[in-house]
Design a protein around this nucleic acid. Structure first.
Length: 495
RNA sequence: GCGGGAGUAACUCAGUUGGUAGAGUCACAGCCUUCCAAGCUGUUGGUCGCGGGUUCGAGUCCCGUCUCCCGCUCCA
């Protein structure tokens, strides 16, 4: 009878086990840790690599998709073109009294039209608004009014504070006036500097997504690999976002790894490819052992500036559903923008119509780090076996960090030597582990806890007829086969 | 960033009104063991998150700070 502990306890158990067994350590732990940063230990890195390898094979192995590995540092103009410089920072204010925090644009967005007009009049923005929009102020909609106000606030260091002082903007939560702080910018991109001298002129960003490295290399890849639209480019790599808050173990971190694929296609075919990829990616997660019962696809209601359609594959984490992959129809937004900002044409030639066009892009952006955590959470189970508790990681053999343990039943009669020899042989084909300490039952349980799917045991029968037992993790059932056939037996089970 | 909770051995946790830091588990070395974590012996391992302060004396009281968890906020 399997059981899953309550949600808050479950995550703590997984964090604890991760550290104890070497999946995940907190970054810089001996210095007190670093907020939201985690290190992969020996088992964690094996499992992460297995996930990434599976993804890489699924992408590059299907044909029509090329891989790249772009630099993390890119030309700063890339992020102007992508919209990140403008959209990836939100001015925010705090209420000094009730401690609520607001995004300034949300503040105006929820304001009544009457209020917005009162603010405009009081700040003599009315004329400027009319001028900007080239129309009478009475015809300006509420949304336009809010938008213009916002842009004026962004251009002025003092305007917002003036409005607060004149009691035109109060705290929506506690209703007090004169309590809102001046707006502060939260830029979610990490900034650093090229060269030893720190200077605005040499500022660069750590990439907040890997996608842009693909877009700027679009023509390079297409020409060098002799691909034709439709085709895809994929990449695995680290990305960085200066999140205000990190939380939930590996789920929201400032440094994380992405597995992204951008599929370039002609406008008009994009919607069909979007659907195809949505299904392909959904099925891929299941191929790693993720059950459909813990997954859902959630379409975005509010679309980002670049997207025509978008949705997330979500996994039911202990803390609730969370995104593990986004599927977006980015249209021709990115290539068009890079054409504008770089001055280089990123169009392709249509052989049939003899026309040039900018391809549309369907993006699949999976989180390697998040996927790792999802698969770890999914695998963790506690069950009662003959009155004893058994902790078992039901990891799919394809992603399990160690594939097989080789154990002598007892440490005598030459069993350790035979086991060591077999382990050495298996090691060449798969990650294996030899263990002769304590009772065999204890060793089985240790392997269960780290998700090792198989255990081969050398016993006294082995000495007589060269057979061994293979114990399967989930069922704990054993079969007996010839020692010479072990390697092939396991290889067949790995697929 | 705000509010709440927590931080003592690798893990889970005790530690009384302030008086020389403990247990279980794990790990390691042996012994014993012929199939599912509980046998025996021994061993390693702790600047009590970090830094100040009060005190003759601080794991314990005070201040600051860091990290983790929950909630709010945020999450192009």
């Amino acid at each position: 009878m399997a059981q899953v502990p309550s949600s808050q306890a479950l995550l703590e158990k997984i964090v604890s086990l991760s550290k104890r067994r070497g999946f995940i350590f907190q970054s810089s732990e001996i210095y007190g840790g670093l907020n939201g940063c985690w290190d992969f230990g020996p088992l964690g890195v094996e499992m992460l690599r297995n996930i990434k390898d599976a993804w890489w094979r699924a992408m590059t192995g299907r044909g029509g998709i090329e891989g790249i590995d772009a630099s993390i540092l890119m030309h700063p103009r890339v992020w102007e073109a992508s919209g990140h410089v403008q959209n990836f920072s939100d001015p925010m204010v705090d209420c000094r009294e009730c401690k609520m925090r607001y995004r300034v644009d949300h503040l105006f967005g929820e304001m009544s039209e009457k209020k917005l007009r009162a603010i405009s009049k009081a700040t003599t923005l009315e004329g400027a608004l009319a001028k900007t929009l080239n129309m009478q102020s009475q015809e300006v909609t509420k949304e336009q009014l809010a938008e213009i106000l916002l842009s004026m606030i962004e251009k002025s260091d003092t305007l917002f504070s003036e409005l607060v002082e004149k009691e035109l903007i109060g705290c929506p939560n506690c209703g007090r006036v004169k309590t809102l702080t001046p707006p502060r910018n939260f830029n979610l991109m990490f900034e650093t500097h090229i060269g030893p001298v720190k200077d605005d002129s040499n500022a660069v960003y750590l990439r907040p997504e890997t996608a842009q490295g693909i877009f700027v290399n679009f023509l390079n890849v297409m020409q060098s690999s002799r691909q034709k639209v439709p085709f895809g480019i994929c990449q695995i790599g680290k990305s960085f976002r200066n999140e205000i808050n990190t939380k939930n173990f590996l789920f929201r971190t400032r440094e994380f790894e992405q597995m992204e694929m951008q599929f370039f296609c002609k406008a008009g075919t994009d919607e069909q490819f979007f659907e195809e990829w949505r299904e392909t990616r959904w099925n891929w997660w299941q191929s790693l052992g993720m059950p459909e019962s813990k997954m859902r696809f959630k379409p975005h209601e509010k679309l980002a500036h670049y997207a025509k359609a978008a949705g997330d594959i979500e996994f039911l984490f202990p803390f609730g559903f969370g995104e593990i992959e986004g599927i977006h129809n980015r249209t021709d937004f990115d290539l068009t923008r890079h054409t504008e900002f770089s001055g280089k044409s990123l169009q392709v030639h249509d052989e049939q119509t003899k026309e040039k066009y900018t391809p549309y892009v369907v993006e699949t952006a999976a989180g390697a780090t998040r996927g790792f955590m999802a698969l770890l959470c999914n695998a963790y189970e506690e069950e009662q076996v003959e009155g004893e508790q058994r902790v078992v990681m039901r990891l799919s053999p394809s992603i399990a960090p160690i594939k097989v343990a080789v154990l002598p039943l007892v440490n005598k009669d030459g069993m350790p030597e035979i086991a060591q020899s077999l382990e050495k042989d298996l090691r060449r084909s798969m990650k294996s582990f030899y263990d002769d300490s304590g009772a065999v039952g204890r060793r089985y349980r240790r392997m269960d806890e780290i998700g090792t799917p198989f255990a081969v045991t050398i016993d006294s029968d082995t000495l007589v007829d060269q057979t061994v037992t293979i114990r399967e993790r989930d069922s704990m059932k054993q079969i007996r086969i010839a020692i010479a056939g072990v390697r092939q037996y396991l290889m067949d089970k790995m697929d």
